[in-house]
């Protein structure tokens, strides 16, 4: 029985910083980190490993430097790490990414449970998890806040919905995406780091996988970005001044003018 965690390297911040002197965008000094939601996925896999005795593996797609975050996951207790790295994977949208990950997961023999973070903080689409489940022909649940019970055949989890929570039972193998209610990600132990700082990370290229190269990377991506632009978020605003009572009165009269609130009766 194996649990596979899919992780992604993302920039530590999305904030666009403007140099106060030159007014240009500062790009320096932004480190790369494990997608914060994926740290909950890793932690959950490690907890399940302790409880069930299953094997754990982490899979990522990206440039060779992504080995670092894969080793970080091993220091935390993940048993094996795999990196899909090849120019042929580059430029992938969510569909081509899911296809590559599915190829990688099949290559390592598949897993009984696949865990992904709810979404990545750079792309912010939350699409790769469900797409991957579809490509692996397994059921999925998104936004999992708790695994209530799990055995080799099925699991019951609590999912955050728009209105509250749902308890969902699903047959294994299955895929879940987790949110940050599920656990508190721990830190690696000193032993964990000493054991894994030069641990091998298996790297697969396109030719190692049983996939159709034309469905990978830029070529395999149905969507194309045709234009990017910086949105103008700033708006004209009015400062309401005076004492807090005056400010409140001014606000209430503005909101009445805009027909947002009205006096009763």
């Amino acid at each position: 029985m194996k649990i596979i965690v899919c992780i992604k390297q993302v920039p530590a911040t999305n904030e666009v910083r403007l140099d106060p002197v030159t007014n240009t965008i500062i790009r320096e000094g932004i480190e790369s980190i494990t997608n914060p939601f994926d740290t909950y996925a890793i932690e959950e896999a490690i907890r399940l490993k302790k409880k069930l005795g299953w094997q754990t593996a982490a899979v990522s797609m990206g440039i060779p430097a992504v080995k670092e975050i894969l080793r970080d996951s091993m220091a935390l207790g993940i048993d094996e790490a795999y990196l899909l790295s090849d120019r042929g994977f580059a430029g992938a949208d969510t569909l081509a990414t899911a296809y590559a990950l599915a190829g990688g997961i099949q290559k390592i023999g598949g897993g009984q449970l696949i865990i992904c973070g709810k979404m990545a903080t750079d792309g912010d689409t939350a699409q790769v998890g469900p797409m991957l489940a579809e490509m692996l022909s397994i059921p999925h649940v998104t936004d999992v806040a708790e695994i209530i019970r799990i055995d080799e055949k099925e699991m019951v989890c609590r999912k955050l919905t728009d209105d509250g929570y749902q308890e969902i039972k699903l047959h294994l193998p299955a895929l879940i995406t987790v949110n940050k209610e599920i656990n508190v990600p721990g830190l690696p132990s000193m032993q964990g780091i000493l054991d894994t700082y030069d641990a091998p990370v298996t790297t697969y290229t396109v030719s190692d996988l049983d996939v159709a190269p034309e469905l990978l990377g830029l070529a395999g991506s149905p969507t194309q970005v045709v234009r990017t632009f910086i949105p103008n978020l700033a708006i004209d605003n009015e400062w309401l001044t005076g004492t807090v009572n005056q400010q409140t009165d001014a606000l209430l009269s503005r909101l009445s003018e805009h027909n947002i609130i009205e006096k009763e009766g």
């Binding site: 045709v226 990017t228 632009f229």
Partner: peptide
């Protein structure tokens, strides 16, 4: 929105 709303991206799906 992309990059946490810092950038807007226009996307098309021309051939599917």
């Amino acid at each position: 929105p992309a990059f946490g709303g810092n950038l807007m991206a226009t996307i098309i799906c021309p051939k599917h």
